[in-house]
Simulated assay, not measured.
Amino acid sequence: MSKTRSGKTRLPGSLHLTSDLVAKTLRVVEEEGPEPNWTPISRDQLDQLVRRVEEEAGDEEIWVFAYGSLMWNPGFEVAASVDAVAFGWHRAFSLRIERLRATSDAPGLMLALQPGGSCSGLILKLPCATKKEDLRTLLAREIRYAEVCDMVRWVAVKTPMGTRRALTFWASPKQSLLTDKVPLDEAAQLIAQACGPAGSCAEYLHWTVLDLAERRIFDRNLWTLQKLVAERLQALPSRIDPR
């Protein structure tokens, strides 16, 4: 890894996990209901979570630290976006799933923040005019089950404007069976196999690494992971178009 004259990070070679390889993982998968052994968050619980975050924010603007899919698919109209680094945290495929982009027969992994290291990403500002509605939509998307309401928290991030406080979603140690650290080889196998109604885990990884590459952000673990997933997918036969 090196710097260009403009100060941007030069990435170490091209991506191995291509769109053609990702296509091997995509298939039609029917909805299976909620994650096994988890309780879907109720309307009242979601309202309580929204009120909690609003009370913690006070009169301040709400910024959200994006390190994965929120970077390329925020799901709300972003009022402002600023480069940011969260020190003391790193992104990792450590959130075990059996729904959305996986099934019980072929479980997968999604990104979460884990303690330690540093994580480069963005902070996204919620529009003032629709802040409450957008906050509720965001929390409903990221916190789907009552048992994981503690997986939303505030972190301090460094930006060109100085240190700011931002809301983010993390791997709480209270849910250790859900968020244990996963070795890269095991993570690659889970990601390569998993697909659900929302798409595949390989697709999610592809879009995330591609977005990071376009922003000249180098994440060593994700760069290694996309190569390992690509190697597994290269060994699979291409899917035949039924048309």
Rank of each mutant, 00 (worst) to 15 (best):
R220F: 08
S172C: 08
K132T: 13
A194F: 06
T137A: 12
K174E: 14
V82Q: 08
L126Y: 02
G7I: 06
T130E: 04
R91G: 04
T224W: 13
R243I: 13
A140Y: 07
L122V: 02
I97Y: 00
L233H: 03
C195F: 01
T39P: 05
N37M: 12
P34Q: 07
P107C: 05
V85W: 06
L111F: 03
R164T: 07
V157Q: 02
E35T: 07
P197L: 10
E98P: 00
P237I: 10
S69V: 01
T25H: 07
Q45N: 12
H16S: 15
P127S: 04
A84L: 07
L167D: 01
A86I: 07
A102Y: 00
S19F: 11
L228R: 15
K8S: 10
F65W: 03
E35Y: 08
Y145W: 12
E186A: 14
R51S: 15
S238T: 12
L109T: 02
F218S: 09
A106C: 13
R27K: 15
V152R: 10
F93Y: 12
L113R: 05
D59E: 15
M151H: 13
S104K: 15
L46P: 02
L49G: 09
H206K: 06
L177M: 12
A171F: 00
T179W: 03
V64K: 01
M71R: 11
R144N: 05
T103V: 12
G88S: 09
L205Q: 04
V148Q: 10
K158L: 08
S118H: 12
R239P: 04
V209M: 01
A235V: 01
E32C: 13
L124F: 03
G196C: 02
T18I: 09
L17S: 12
T224A: 15
H90V: 01
D180E: 15
F65R: 04
W223Y: 13
F65Q: 03
E30L: 09
D20P: 04
R153S: 14
G117I: 00
G88I: 08
I217H: 07
A235K: 12
G199P: 00
S118N: 09
P237V: 05
N37G: 11
S200W: 02
V29R: 01
V22Y: 06
W72T: 01
L212D: 00
W63F: 08
A129Y: 08
C195W: 03
L49E: 10
G121F: 03
V82W: 06
W72V: 01
K132E: 11
E54P: 08
P197Y: 08
P12I: 08
T208H: 05
W223E: 12
P237C: 07
S172F: 05
M161Y: 12
L184C: 02
W207F: 14
R164L: 13
F169T: 03
N221M: 08
I97W: 00
S94P: 04
Q114M: 09
A92P: 01
L138S: 05
L21P: 11
S118P: 02
E60W: 10
L184K: 04
R101S: 05
R43W: 07
R239F: 06
Q175N: 14
R27Q: 15
V209D: 03
E147A: 11
V85C: 11
E60D: 15
E31G: 13
R215N: 05
